[in-house]
Structures are given as C-alpha cells and as structure tokens.
C-alpha cells in the first residue's frame, strides 16, 4: 500500500502536465475552428504534388468512377 504515497503524487503531477499541455494548445489557437480542419484533408489540393505520369492515370480512374455512377 505504501507505493500509493509515490503513485498518487505522480498521478497529480501527470494531471498538472496534462493541464499545461491543454492550456498551451488553447493559447496556440487550436480550438478556434473546431469544424474546418477535419474537412481540409478531404480536398484535392495536392495536384501539383502528383507526378505527371501518375496524374493521367488518376484522371482515367476518375472518369470510370463517374461513368459507374
């Protein structure tokens, strides 16, 4: 049981660290837009990163998709 005298203060310190991290994330503005960032990943704005040969392929499969619909 005596380990509790060590473990409980340790837990309290962890809580303090957690609170500090939380306060930091609030300060850095991570809670300002709660909806937008989730959608950001879904948008195809990385076309310039795709190599040209791969791009052609992608368009083909795109067309098939829409035909399928």
């Amino acid at each position: 049981m005596s380990t509790l005298y060590l473990l409980i203060p340790l837990a309290a310190i962890l809580v303090i660290i957690a609170i500090a991290l939380f306060l930091w994330s609030i300060k850095s503005g991570q809670f300002e837009d709660m909806e937008g960032p989730g959608f950001r990943i879904l948008m195809d704005d990385d076309e310039d990163l795709i190599p040209d040969d791969a791009k052609v392929k992608k368009k083909d499969s795109d067309k098939k998709d829409t035909e399928g619909n």
Binding site: E35, G36, G38, F39, R40, L42, M43, D45
Partner: peptide
C-alpha cells in the same frame, strides 16, 4: 467545407 477550400 468545400466553399472554404474553394475560397482558399
């Protein structure tokens, strides 16, 4: 969200 993307 698509509007946001479009504008950005």
């Amino acid at each position: 969200a698509a509007c946001v993307w479009l504008n950005e």
